[in-house]
Design a protein around this nucleic acid. Structure first.
Lengths: 152, 152
DNA sequence: GACAATTCGTTAGCCTGCTAACTATTAGCG
DNA sequence: CGCTAATAGTTAGCAGGCTAACGAATTGTC
């Protein structure tokens, strides 16, 4: 029994910490009627201008079908616009609307607040270390499983 | 413009790393027909024996309504059993079935494999640091937002 | 130029998160 | 004792993850 280091491990802390982070972020954004992922969409559009859905999904590291519904809601709420791409009729270009501008300003405020709360008590060096370690774990898991035991 | 350190920050890395982790875990568990959260339920039951739903939700750090549906599916699949508590008719005690035993053994295998992959190239000290830093961030976000700006 | 392979967005179906609101039961307090 | 408050589990409704599969359009190849 008690091979049960199982849950007191990296995966456990990743899970609960990320959950908390999203919860705090979403709570902070409630007054502006948007969510964490929606704020991220506006962030990328602010940074890069118009993007196709595939490009946006790539930057957000989510699958295209997941993005579709996020954009559906944002389009419904008038935060973004889908425009057919003039050179490739398969693509649609996503752009932020004028209505989203003031929302984006609020998001930046919120993001700063949450980050300050999240990193309270951590030195710059510790924050850098945390990012570096997370980056390594992420990279480790990026590869498809080696299927090394397929012949056992 | 470019207050957009926004997404190159802790929240970003937390999000993508955790996503990857869950994806890897779920992928590895597909052959056994269960998911990450279901495996966690079995883990807690293996460790603690019968638990009420509120206790289980507390240990898993999720809300009771979220747990209900997870348990519904597991009960449907014969992995757990809900038993009325003899001393409190509101409570239900959750227990693992005999059918879940071999599944649990497989989970332990998978968990070890994923963890090994995730922490590849990290020393024990680095893993401890990662857990410690995640723990601090989690703790920072645990408190309800101070509502310090409510009067502005 | 025609046909196969690929890419883009979408839909459907499943699992997981949350809050709000409800029922049933228990606990607490006058 | 009796009434209120709190607790356990559930349901409904919304947002977000994924895969599989599909139609439309483009790219690649012979």
């Amino acid at each position: 029994m008690l091979d049960y280091d199982f849950d007191e491990s990296i995966g456990y802390w990743l899970t609960v910490t990320t959950q908390r982070y999203h919860r705090a972020f979403n709570d902070a954004l409630v007054p502006y009627g948007i969510t964490f992922r929606q704020s991220q969409v506006l962030g990328w559009l602010a940074l890069e201008g118009e993007l196709s859905q595939a490009e946006l999904a790539g930057k957000m590291m989510i699958e295209p079908p997941t993005l579709v519904r996020i954009l559906d809601r944002m389009e419904r709420d008038g935060l973004i616009r889908r425009r057919p791409c003039p050179t490739d009729r398969r693509r649609k270009l996503i752009g932020a609307t004028a209505k989203s501008k003031p929302v984006w300003a609020k998001i930046v405020e919120c993001a700063k607040g949450i980050r300050a709360r999240a990193t309270d008590g951590l030195t710059d060096r510790q924050q850098a270390t945390l990012k570096k370690l997370l980056g390594r774990v992420h990279e480790n898991l990026l590869l498809t499983p080696p299927t090394e035991l397929s012949d056992r």
